[in-house]
Amino acid sequence: MRADPFSEVDANRLSQSKYSVFRSVESLASMTIADRSGDGNLVSIRDLVFSRDERKIFDGIDLDIRRGKVTAIMGPSGTGKTTLLKLIGGQLRPDRGTVVFDGKVVHEQGLRDLYALRRKMGMLFQTGALLTDIDVFENVAFPLREHTRLPESMIRTLVLMKLQAVGLRGARHLMPAQLSGGMARRVALARAIALDPMMIMYDEPFTGQDPISLGVLVKLIRDLNHSLGLTSVLVSHDVHETLSIADYIYMISEGKIVGQGTPEELDRSASQFVAQFVHGLADGPVPFHYPSDADYAGDLMGPVKRRPGARH
């Protein structure tokens, strides 16, 4: 059925770009060789508003993800970076605004079309999200078995190729519970590229890794992006690793984009927040102290009041 998956994907990209409505002139100007389709942005987000439980997580965000580039989205914990990935993947619906992936408005697709869109994106979850009841080989084979009717021999070849790409061909008989965190993420990465997607979204890939597996992951993300012509979206708060591989970076804080640019631009940025985040300062626009209604001296000397939430 799919004798040459690579060429078919390319054909897909070309055919879909014909319907692409959202072309921006500025991105056309900055087109590179990787932009084979002519539209520089694979994902464009316009005026995105999303709130959960009365709390506004995004308040009017505009964001573009260029084809063939590594785009990073950074910000303090709890700013909803993972939520942004879920909005791109269509697992959540925005309250306002649009998310366009490859020329299609994600949340306006029916279930069938949405699933067709998702086959063009891979996602790497923080925990790997491997299926725990089947081994590494079957995990990587899972999307192939679900979406194609390839003969067993071809599935075996493809799976071993993907596992070789992440350096875990020898671990194919292990169960997910036997893998370290870094290995689980690499297997998940092999699974994410099994169907040769156009884009991979990485959700906090560096969190809680030792320096060696950190190095492996950084190398893998960079290499895969170049060798497979992928577009990568990276969500992280690990400044050093992210700056080392990202082509373009967005900084999000309190529902707004507070800074953007190439790593060099951000390093030299005049924005106090960006400076605080990039250089890891304890105090700045994000204060060290949680806001308090009385000043310190008044709080210490003042009368003892029973706290409403106290248990006694």
Partner: peptide, 15 residues
């Protein structure tokens, strides 16, 4: 499976 994002992962694999 839900807590370990396996279900979410399947959704993103278009399953």
């Amino acid at each position: 499976m839900k807590a370990t994002e396996q279900l979410s992962g399947m959704e993103m694999m278009a399953v």
